[in-house]
Every structure is written in C-alpha cells, then in structure tokens.
Design a protein around this nucleic acid. Structure first.
Lengths: 173, 173
DNA sequence: AGAATCATGTAAGGGGTTACATGATTCG
DNA sequence: CGAATCATGTAACCCCTTACATGATTCT
C-alpha cells in the first residue's frame, strides 16, 4: 500500500518483552498464534526487526550458547525501549486504513499486559476520527461532482463504523 | 501493506485508452486530477506501468518525434487490452481492504465512460461481501475469547458500512 | 525412514517511492 | 532572469516476501 503514510508497528514488538526476555524464534511462534490473524509478520522479518530495534537501542541482547544448536540471542528491553513502547501504545493512529491493524494490536497489549489507559486512548482516537470526519464534510460542502461525493461518503461510512466499534470496545473492556 | 493479497489495479489503466490513444505524461496529469485522491500513482510509475502493459500485449505504441522535445510514445489499446479491461472492470474485489481503491476506480470508469453493467457489478460485490460476513460469523460462533470477538466485530462493521454504501451508490447512479 | 521442530539467519526478488538527469520553451 | 512546463525516463533505495541453508533432535 503505497500511499502517503505507512504503518508504525515496529515499536509494538517491544510489548512482547515487557514481562520477560525473549528470542526471535520463540516470539515468532507466540506472535503467530496470538496476532497472526491481525498482523502478518514472517519469521525472517521478525529476526530483522529485532535486530533493528536493538540497533536503535530499544532492545539489548545476551547470547546463550547451547550444545548442538545455534546460539540463542535473547533480547530484553532497555529503559529507552520501555519508554518507546509506552509512547507508541498510547498514541492514536492518524490514518483510517491503519486503524485495523494498529489499533487492534494496541488493544491486544492493553488486554494481555493488563495496562491502564485504554479509555484515554479511545478518547484520543475518537477525537482523531472526528477531525477526519470534519475535514471530509468541510470539503464535501463544495461538491457538485457526484463522484467525489460518493468517495467522501465511502470514507465517512468507514470512519463512522470505526467510531461505533470503539464504543463497543469500551463496553467490552 | 504486506498481506495475503495485493491490489489488482494495473489493468485499470487500460480504461484511459478506451476513447483515445495517450502518452504517459499527458495521462499522468489527467490521472492525478481525476483520481489522485483515490489512487496515488507517481509519474515514474506511470511510465513503468504503461511499458509493462505494452509488454503484456494490452497496449501498442507509436513513436512520434517532435523537434526540440523527447519523442512522444503514444500508446493505444489492442484487442487483448480491450478485453482485459472489460474483464477487470466487471470483477468484484475479493478483499475488503482493496475495495476502497479498486471499487472506487471501477466506479470512476463506469461513470466517465458511461458504461453499462454497474448494477450487475454491485450485485456481485454485495454477494462477495455477504460471503465474507458469513465466514466471519461462522467462526465467530466458537469464540470464547473477547479479543477475537472484537476483531471480528471490527471487520463486520467495515463490511456492513461498505454494503450500505453500495446501496447509496446504486441510488446515485 | 522421512517429516517436523528447534534456532539461526542470508539472498534474491517484487513492487513501489523519491531523487536525479536532460534540454528546450514559456511564464511571471 | 529564474521558475515552471513539457516529455522522457533511469537509479537508488525501502520495505517486505519467499526461498534457501544449516544441522541436530524428536516425532510418526
């Protein structure tokens, strides 16, 4: 998807290290099980991502050698990583098309890590969606073109569906 | 957007050649004006895509030299191209996340080229969406996990919003 | 005996974006 | 006189996917 913005999901991986150090292979299995249907991330890429997060200083690494196996590279969170994750987690996503995966992943962490702040995040996210709506409706005002109006209506429909879902989300949690 | 399927938009470009031959620069300007807010496609990529479509036999090319300018490469539709476009146009999109751009682009062509068959396409698209719904609701039955239920509800919300929009679409046209 | 699991990755490829190159002409 | 337009692209880069490599162990 080729467009003006991209998914910001790399910091999300840090969440898996909150409770304990992990190595990539192990994490990849759990990841696939828990989030595989929401966020697809192949094993190869997992290795690469953890390496990158380490280069950025959010993870640090211990190497544990074992007989007859490749050495395990066990990653753990640094302080910077802990901060980065918290920051990522509590940020609303700015683009509708990313909400599906980004918000659902955030929700996953709020639940599995039993973290506070979901309500605030939902509030922020609703505000962002509200702004999107306003922006669309504003330039929907000067639409004489039927086609562009349909485009706008499509987007409004998607946004409003998300807003309703966010309500449901609050009730469930 | 890295996932299990990809956008099928290349054949859509053929639609711009239905009424007249074009060259890439010219097309790129019109494209940006008409569809720029729905489908982003840089000029460089336009050149590459037309070249590819020509290699695939859907477009053919004449070179028109002009003084003091690079030669114009004017592309026109082949019979194969005409068929390919019609086939693409009347196909529903199979993945929710692609509907926004694919369906809206199809709609654009139905309108600007004044083509018949939109109603049939909408019917097919609704059927596809109905199947998605069923599939989700089926394995929503054996959900005890709250999280997975929210994921399913999110998707159902998006699907239903599209279904409603499709109705609106029929009324407008 | 053959397949899957454990554990690491590398390499190649796909498909798109951004930046850069060229060179005349016309606009402000 | 400098910037934008016309018209073509190429090249580098980014990010992700798929395929492949290794080599012991355990499951069927």
């Amino acid at each position: 998807m080729p467009e003006d913005t991209f998914l910001s999901l790399q910091p999300a991986l840090l969440g898996f290290f909150i409770n304990a150090p992990r190595y990539a292979y192990d994490l990849s299995r759990e990841f696939e099980h828990d989030l595989g249907r929401v966020w697809r991330l192949g094993r190869s890429l997992m290795y690469a991502q953890l390496k990158e997060l380490a280069e950025q200083g959010y993870l640090a690494m211990d190497v544990v050698t074992q007989p007859n196996r490749p050495a395990r590279k066990i990653y753990y969170l640094t302080d910077a990583g802990r901060i980065r994750f918290a920051q990522w987690l509590n940020q609303p996503t700015m683009h509708i098309r990313n909400i599906r995966v980004e918000f659902l992943v955030r929700l996953y962490f709020f639940r599995t890590l039993n973290l506070p702040g979901l309500q605030e995040l939902v509030t922020k996210q609703k505000a962002v969606l509200g702004e999107m709506e306003d922006a669309l409706e504003k330039n929907a005002g000067d639409i004489q073109d039927d086609y562009w109006r349909l485009v706008v209506d499509f987007r409004l429909g998607q946004i409003r569906a998300v807003q309703q879902w966010l309500e449901l989300c609050l009730q469930t949690v």
